[in-house]
Design a protein around this nucleic acid. Sequence first.
DNA 1: TTTATAGTTTTATATTTATCAAACAATGAT
DNA 2: ATCATTGTTTGATAAATATAAAACTATAAA
Lengths: 100, 100
Amino acid sequence: MNIKQLSPDVSETEFKQQVFFALSDPGRYKIVQMLYNVGHEMGCGELNQHVEIDKSTMSYHLKTLREAGITSTRTQGREKYVTLNVAKIELELPGLLASL
Amino acid sequence: MNIKQLSPDVSETEFKQQVFFALSDPGRYKIVQMLYNVGHEMGCGELNQHVEIDKSTMSYHLKTLREAGITSTRTQGREKYVTLNVAKIELELPGLLASL
DNA sequence: TTTATAGTTTTATATTTATCAAACAATGAT
DNA sequence: ATCATTGTTTGATAAATATAAAACTATAAA
């Protein structure tokens, strides 16, 4: 018998709440939606072209997503590439990404 | 061919974002979770017994949920009963409630 | 080595949010 | 009629949030 089924880990609920918080903002919603739909990592600049927000605001939102564990970032040269942690999100909130 | 599939209605996305916002707060998360798990309407007092928050804070959160279209309220005498709009939520975000 | 580019951090600001006490309905009970 | 109960609204407050300009860091290009 799995303890988690009886008393779900606080951090699981916390992660879900952070995902919900992230998706409650129009900018972050679009970022996540776009990352999910393209199905692969995207450069910050590329994202910035599709989602119209100031680059510092974009950086702020990407930081929010990263720190919540929703995305991961890879640096190459002076560019950064953002990936959506699909598996992690699907594990806790199956089907959510598909319904955005 | 369904237009909605090509360009999802703004209000659909807005509703989803409101649901996400609602669920990003621990208090509201518990309220929604509880309503979903019991599977039927609950009195405000009954809710207050399970979710430990000040009655005016509870009223504030219930108003937030109500105005977002997430719950509905029925008055009987001096008590009020809250229902979760399961069908509506399931329509836009299938499976979400089950994964809370 | 100077300059341009990509993105972050800092600073400042306005807005939104959560919380609770206190005052306020509205209805039921005595 | 008076009192008690249920829940809402108002007002005040502290904290969190979103935004963007400006300064900054790091790398690439000239």
